[in-house]
Nucleic acid binder design. Structure first.
Length: 424
RNA sequence: CGGGGUGUAGCGCAGUUGGCUAGCGCGCCUGCUUUGGGAGCAGGAGGUCCUCGGUUCGAAUCCGAGCACCCCGACCA
């Protein structure tokens, strides 16, 4: 992809509406633009990252035996009346009325819809377990949207639902999902913790929250460096640094570390909360109707994009991990009026694309400084610098966004060197 | 929903005891020069000063109402 032909509107100045690094950098790097409070457009660069995150999640979900589908956004009121949540969800649910005055909610979560589907289609214990998931835009009329896509009113979520015949089956699938989540967040390059949590409105007995460590996180927890035990911080701990209590780990008695965190994933053991309310049953071996034992598993996909930046950036811009970077390689020909520089860059561009490597070529007739600044802002992991200076000795330069030092490589070895880095 | 703040060019802002043609930096367009960390000079385009109403000879500026956005809090699968 050539910068000259792409839609990546970068900004030098920090928009006054953005307070935290990820929000500022997503705006400055041309990843997102605001349409209304808590409602954002993903521009091509941001969308690429979003898609990469989705793909990581998709691979791990499929590997865990889940199947992807797509549920509707419009939910008829009657369905939500079955569980009593039409009233319980209240103003947080955005509502619309059709031409026949029929009421719908814009889906803030999909337990009702998925349970309705499964109760219609699954009749026998022989068809269980079933694990289904989707990527979808969720709507929640948050009291206070903030921090860009971190807490939006419209956002992308991966939600997954498991249906089992008994608690034992659920336990197996639940553990599979927890492991899949650990794989996902590891692949995304996160430092994260898993903490047992309240299950809140969704209900059920057991739940785990997946928390990315970041100073700007809206929540906080204590963790033990020795045994990895975690517990959520109480509100009074969050608010006053000074008055924060010192907690000892209940398992190994060492003092625990306080950290702010961003919730990126949440798993719930739902039991029969929804299946019972909605009369969603299957027949067991004895021909008796039994309610499905359910689990649900959510990941904030668009939030992950912001959380990644929150955890990995510097004064100059974003630092993407290879796994979700919008492009893996950025080519920086510093003087496109030099024919040899230009030709070398074009050749690398073609060769990398032929190898299936995502690459962004800064083919603009801009000064070196401008290109370097934009490259650092965009945060593409591998920077390849092609300059008149290096051409003289038949070399190019490779710099990792995450490191300061550059390595010089003989021109003929460039491609293989980059390929080795991409695969690392 | 309570408290605080802000709305002036694409972005960041100044101008607000009422006054003349509404300004600065960045960005954008044209030309020349420049070319390893957001270049220089010259020329140029771009504004319902958030909206509506009121006061006044005259309103970006004063008054009233509304809207939007941001921050703190409560809330949040």
């Amino acid at each position: 992809m050539r910068i000259s032909e792409s839609f990546i509107p970068t900004m030098k100045e920090i928009p006054s509406e953005a307070q935290i690094p990820s929000h500022q950098l997503m705006l400055r790097a041309g990843m997102i633009r605001k349409l209304a409070s808590g409602v954002y457009t993903f521009l091509p660069l941001g969308y690429r990252v979003l898609k990469n995150v989705e793909q990581v999640i998709r691979e791990e979900m499929n590997a865990a035996g889940a199947q992807e589908l797509l549920l509707p956004t419009l939910h008829p009121r009657e369905l939500w009346e079955e569980t009593g949540r039409w009233g319980l969800y209240g103003d947080e649910m955005l509502k619309v009325t059709d031409r026949n005055k029929r009421e719908f909610g814009l889906g803030p979560t999909h337990e009702e819809v998925i349970t309705d589907l499964v109760r219609r289609e699954v009749r026998s214990y022989r068809q269980l377990p079933v694990i289904l998931y989707q990527f979808q835009t969720k709507f929640r009329d948050e009291i206070r949207p903030r921090f860009g896509v971190m807490r939006g009113r419209e956002f992308i979520m991966k939600d997954c639902y498991s249906f089992d015949r008994d608690e034992k089956g659920l336990e197996i699938n639940y553990q599979k999902m927890v492991q899949a989540y650990k794989n996902i967040f590891t692949r995304c390059g996160f430092k994260f913790k898993v903490v047992q949590a309240d299950s809140g409105n969704i209900g059920g007995s057991l739940s785990h929250e997946f928390m990315v460590l970041a100073d700007t996180g809206e929540e906080a927890l204590y963790y033990c460096e020795a045994c990895d035990h975690c517990q959520k911080a109480k509100e009074e701990d969050d608010n006053s640094q000074a008055g924060r209590e010192k907690l000892s780990c209940p398992k190994c008695n060492k003092e625990m570390t306080y950290t702010r965190v961003i919730e990126v994933g949440h798993t719930f053991n739902l039991g029969t909360k929804y299946s019972a309310a909605m009369k969603a049953t299957f027949l067991d071996e004895k021909g008796e109707a039994q309610p499905f034992i359910m689990g649900c598993y959510g990941i904030g996909v668009s939030r992950i994009v912001a959380a990644s930046i929150e955890q990995s950036h510097d004064a100059n811009g974003i630092i993407w991990p290879l796994s979700i970077a919008p492009f893996k390689v950025m080519l920086l020909p510093l003087d496109v009026s030099n024919e040899q520089v230009k030709v070398t860059a074009e050749k690398l561009h073609q060769d990398l694309q032929a190898q299936g490597v995502t690459v962004l070529l800064d083919d603009r007739d801009e000064r070196a400084g401008v290109k370097f600044k934009d490259a650092d802002l965009l945060g593409i992991p591998i920077k390849v610098i092609i300059s008149t200076r290096n051409m003289a000795e038949n070399k190019i330069e490779i710099k990792l966004r995450s490191k300061n030092d550059a390595i010089k490589v003989d021109l003929p070895e460039t491609l293989s060197k980059i390929m080795a880095m991409v695969k690392a």
